[in-house]
């Protein structure tokens, strides 16, 4: 049983995890909207699996919802992965290409 105070603490901790360093309110808005977008988007992506079979889609959707709660704010990770650092971009290009080749050749 958590008191209202500790719930507030939890929320505050969750919110402060979004940005690092000094955060203005407008930056904060951006991060929180981004987080919500990502959450919704991942749920939509999960629901795509209904094309293969509807139960599978439901299971994956549930898994994604669970993952969202466990892994907390994802927007920082997304932002990091979206940096224009050459190695990072190269890494993702390789992954993409491997996935394309694998899916089309052996899918």
């Amino acid at each position: 049983m958590g008191s209202i105070d500790s719930l507030y603490d939890k929320v505050k901790r969750f919110v402060t995890e979004f940005t690092s360093g000094k955060s203005t309110s407008s930056a904060m808005t951006g991060y929180m909207t981004g987080e919500l977008q990502i959450v919704v988007f991942m749920m939509i992506l999960a629901s795509f699996f209904r094309i293969f079979s509807i139960p599978l889609g439901m299971v994956i959707l549930a898994a994604v919802v669970g993952a969202i709660f466990i892994f907390g704010p994802m927007i920082k990770t997304i932002e990091d992965e979206n940096s224009s650092d050459l190695n990072r971009v190269l890494f993702w290009v390789m992954i993409y290409f491997a996935v394309i080749i694998a899916v089309t050749l052996w899918g």
Partner: peptide, 19 residues
């Protein structure tokens, strides 16, 4: 240069092998 070290490096190698 940490971008391609550790587990990411292994994933990258696997991806390269698939390619």
């Amino acid at each position: 240069s940490k971008g391609l070290k550790g587990s990411r490096g292994i994933i990258a190698v696997i991806a390269l092998m698939i390619i």
